[in-house]
């Protein structure tokens, strides 16, 4: 029987989760080791965001367990099929986040707070892909960034790093 823990979101929703799943979070793992986690573990993460975090952790956990159970026979093909499945899952996950940037940023902050390096890197890569090759004006529009430079300041920056602004 797997050991279960109860996580409490900032809006007081309880999530019952297997220890192996939540131990991917270094923050929670430490709380458990320190014995601070008797009963519910209170987290500064909303239920909506926490649900997404757990969705990610379960997928990752699934992957690791299957790899451990593999023997070598037929492994190459199986691994490739699994890689395809995971990729498909990740693409769907990314598409949802791209469509709702608020969830994306909530998740970024949560992965940082919960110390989930794999999720953090995945999300940073996702944002980087959204920014790559785009003109500054496009990036500002995409993320509502307000340009607070005067035209002179802007000119000075463009002059300083010439090549960076070549299309």
């Amino acid at each position: 029987m797997a050991i279960m823990y109860a996580l409490k979101s900032s809006d007081n929703e309880i999530f019952e989760v297997e220890q192996k799943v939540i131990e991917q979070s270094e923050t929670i793992k430490k709380m458990i080791e320190d014995g601070a986690a008797t009963g519910e573990i209170p987290l500064q993460v909303s239920s909506k965001t926490l649900a997404k975090v757990l969705e990610w952790c379960k997928q990752r956990q699934h992957k690791t367990v299957e790899n451990e159970n593999d023997d070598n026979k037929g492994k190459r093909k199986k691994e490739r099929d699994e890689d395809d499945d995971i990729k498909e899952w990740e693409n769907k996950f990314s598409d949802e986040l791209k469509a709702d940037k608020d969830v994306l940023f909530d998740l970024l902050l949560a992965s940082n707070y919960l110390d989930l390096p794999a999720l953090l890197s995945f999300l940073c890569q996702l944002v980087a892909d959204m920014v790559a090759g785009k003109m500054p004006e496009e990036i500002r529009r995409m993320f509502n960034i307000e340009n607070d430079f005067t035209p002179e300041e802007e000119k000075a920056i463009t002059a300083e790093h010439g090549w960076a602004f070549q299309p």
Binding site: C124, Q125, A128, D129, V131, A132, G133, P136, I139, R140, I145, E146, N147, D148, F149, E154, I157, T158, H161, W163, A164, F165
Partner: peptide
């Protein structure tokens, strides 16, 4: 995760 060219170009987004 960006080529350094793109990373430096973010300097113009805002202060």
């Amino acid at each position: 995760f960006l080529p350094t060219k793109d990373a430096v170009a973010t300097s113009i987004l805002s202060s």
